[in-house]
Amino acid sequence: MYIKRILLIVLLAGLLAGGVFAYKVYDAIFSPNTSFNNEVAYLYIPSDADFIEVKELVAPLLKDVGSFSQVAERKGYVSNVKAGKYAIKRGMNNNEIINSLRSNNIPIKVAFNNQETLADLAGRISAQIEADSLALYKSFSDEGFLKSNKLDKATSLTMYIPNSYEFFWNTSATEFRDRMLKEYRRFWNEDRLKKAKALNLSPHEVSTLAAIVHKETAKVDERPKVAGLYLNRLKRGMLLQADPTVIYALKKHTGNFDTIIKRVLYKDLELDSPYNTYKYGGLPPGPITMPDISAIDAVLNPEKHDYLYMVANVDDFGYHKFAETAAQHNRNKVQYIQWINAQKIKR
């Protein structure tokens, strides 16, 4: 009888211990383990991160890091860390958190436009994905890549079509560049290629002219008219005489693309640069900025007219006054010069 009591006590103690253990296991796996008040928090895990780094990154979001580590080890996550952007929702338990970190890499939207150089583009992209600006710039300017895709440093910017794209945060520099090449080829579909051919322009030349149109006017509805004007000048063999190209030439000459130039001076027109369209005929070697899609399509779908000259319209800011003759243009220009002098804009 005494032995039976002892066995019963041992059995009950074992059951109690097992129950406590089971509860602790259950609690570690299935009890909520977040410590933030927002609905969701995001975790960015670098490509070279190990579990120790993940634990440091996730610790501020958890009530109990120890239980998280235990569950991570049981589920094999400790040796299978994956880079990316992950969401941890308020009230998640360790099991749900680990499952999210294992398989729910969240795509992000990467957007860019209006970059003047590859370095600018690299900086813009590095602020949105894991790859740093140096790695991106090296990838963008890789001579082997450029040559194999019939590009050079002057035309390389044409490959990047401004838009919003979906990427994983841990996309590498090379992966980003190669994806942009695919998007470029998709953009230049049969319809756009046909229109470019009708203008006797290559896609690179279309983008180069579109960059000038983009810089000349921010008014999307005016861009087809401006495009038509420059195409008229090209057909007649006239110099484009586009002020934005001179500004770009000045920036490139000084190496300072952060310079703000509001007024082109007569002495600037003498700068010896292939980008100076007051001095050299035809199109510049490449785009002076990254043109919007609206500017590219404006060149491909230009307004048909006989205008050859334009000047800023001080009565309707943002737009221009157009002229078919130099005499008419000079009359329009007088009003603009009077206005700009009144503003005391010297540079």
Rank of each mutant, 00 (worst) to 15 (best):
D243P: 03
L283H: 02
D191P: 07
S67A: 15
F322G: 02
L250Y: 02
K321G: 00
L136Y: 09
G144F: 12
N332H: 07
G19C: 06
W188Y: 10
S67N: 15
E96Q: 10
T208P: 00
A119G: 10
I161V: 14
I212C: 04
L239Y: 05
W339E: 09
S172P: 02
H320D: 00
P302C: 04
F68V: 08
Y184F: 15
D292W: 13
Y280H: 14
N170P: 02
F176M: 01
K82W: 05
E222V: 11
V65Q: 11
E324H: 01
N114D: 10
Y160V: 09
Y2N: 12
F30S: 03
N99K: 15
L15N: 00
E53L: 14
Y77I: 08
K346N: 10
F145V: 15
T217I: 03
S202F: 06
K251G: 04
L157W: 12
A135P: 11
Y307N: 00
L269F: 01
R233A: 11
S100V: 05
A41V: 15
V314Y: 06
R5G: 07
K215I: 02
E39H: 15
A154W: 10
F187A: 08
F30P: 01
E216L: 05
A111S: 09
N332Y: 04
L157F: 11
W188D: 06
P46T: 04
A17L: 07
A135W: 10
T117L: 13
A295G: 04
G66L: 10
A198K: 15
P203N: 02
I345W: 02
I293Y: 11
M92F: 12
Q338L: 14
P287L: 00
V10R: 04
I97F: 09
V81L: 04
E183I: 13
N313Y: 05
A342W: 09
V334E: 08
L199E: 13
L201P: 01
K24G: 13
